[in-house]
Simulated assay, not measured.
Amino acid sequence: MVHVASALRIFLAAFAFGTAEFVIAGVLPEVATGLGVSIPIAGYLVSGYAIGIAIGGPLLAVATKKLTRKTLILLLGTTFTIGQVLCALAPSFELLMAARVLVSIVHGTYFGIAAIVAVNLVPADKRGFAVALILSGLTVSNILGVPGGTAIGNALGWRATFWAVGALGLAATLAVALFLPARTGQSSTTGSFLREFKALGRQQIVTSLAIVILVMIGQYSLFTYIAPLLLEVTGLDTNIVPLVLLLYGVGATIGVFVGGRLADWKLMPSLIAILTTQAVAFTLLYVVSPYPLIMAIAVVFWGGVNFAFGSPVQSRVLAWAGDAPNLASALIPTGFNIGIAIGAVLGATLLESGFGYRHLPLIGSAALVLAVFIAIGSYWLERRSPAPLPQAAE
């Protein structure tokens, strides 16, 4: 129970990071007006954040590999809090961008290290649940953090949003400092940089990262444009769309924990089943998109299966990078963000080619079918040539 409580404190930090990443969308017009730039230019604050996670996160993870886990988490939490203060005080768009990139680099490293710490805090048969607890910080941030931060920005100005997120980060950092077990700080990786890179060559890690990218391509080729799809194809009222998206977030949170339980039960069979269900969900969205009630239910189901895959795939990466977890774990957020970027571009390309919003789920169907074949092939190779899981280096 103590270990679960410690993981809950890491969840609080994950919630803060998730809110920091996504809340900008809710106050983007106000930020643009306040800094004297156009909304499209302000939108680069989202792109810059994603690039910082994808590139800076892994580099910082390797550079700080000598630090103990607890020390690193506290350093990342402190930097995150300072970064939010810099965002709140930024007098220009350029300085706000710089502060956001700083936070994003810390973000990319944090989620990799947090997953490592979480699985080491609990028994082996609870590791999937521990990863799910961290991932749920992201989904809950969309349900509570983003609307809350947006409301604060609307009432008190966009700078107040960053102050609030900074306060949340400070609270999470203090909780970790006070209550995360001291022995957690003994779990640094002292091996060479070469070991970190060699671990990436294991087929289980390569295929898992490929699956992450494919799932995100499928998800964000559709989710990026889900609002206009619901309005134009499904015919939902403007006031109903936020409710459907809220239910999507609830479904996603439930899916995270279902995936965690399945990962603790039978990891690879569960992952293959989840990916297959995702492919079915995308096809279902294509079929039922013109029918409002069925479509609303399908979106909630889609949210659940989308986020169920995260715990199994991250648990697999951490298991097969046990002797060199820093770089491999930090590449998971990188894979997510690469997939998000590609998915958004593919969706835009499909629309610009003359296809309507209704056809967007078909990108997901194709991406997930490919992910299923990769997962099956990887599992077959793993069973054909069984090898012991690598152990943490001393």
Rank of each mutant, 00 (worst) to 15 (best):
S378R: 12
V140M: 10
F80Q: 11
E196W: 00
V37S: 00
L194C: 02
G255L: 09
A164R: 02
W302I: 03
L293H: 15
L59K: 10
F193T: 13
K70G: 02
I113N: 00
P181M: 11
G377N: 05
T207Q: 12
G310V: 14
L246V: 06
S208Q: 00
L209G: 01
A132T: 07
L362S: 06
P325M: 14
K65Y: 06
F307C: 07
I24C: 08
R261W: 15
I41N: 13
V103C: 09
L28G: 07
A61F: 01
A366Y: 09
P29F: 11
F282H: 01
L236P: 05
S289Y: 06
P290H: 14
G56P: 04
T109F: 03
V241L: 10
G145L: 04
I205S: 00
A5E: 14
T349N: 12
T283S: 14
L346G: 06
L262N: 06
F301N: 02
L95M: 12
A281G: 00
T64H: 07
Y44D: 13
S141K: 07
T139N: 04
S311Y: 08
L102D: 03
A371H: 02
V244D: 08
T161H: 05
T189M: 14
A42R: 00
Y248L: 08
G34Q: 03
L271P: 06
Q278C: 13
L351T: 07
F11S: 05
F193Q: 13
T81A: 10
V345R: 15
S385V: 15
H107I: 03
L86S: 01
F355S: 04
L28N: 00
T238Y: 15
L28C: 09
S92V: 01
A61L: 09
L121H: 01
G83V: 03
N326S: 05
A32G: 04
P290I: 13
L60I: 05
V27G: 00
F355A: 13
C87S: 12
E394I: 12
V31G: 03
K126R: 13
K266M: 07
I274L: 06
T81Y: 07
V305Q: 07
A177F: 13
T68L: 13
P242I: 02
I340Y: 13
N120D: 14
T277W: 11
W265Q: 09
P292I: 14
R100Q: 00
G304C: 04
T71L: 11
G304P: 06
A344P: 01
G354A: 05
Q314N: 08
I294L: 14
I24M: 10
L246K: 09
A199E: 04
F373I: 14
Q314A: 08
L267A: 08
L135G: 14
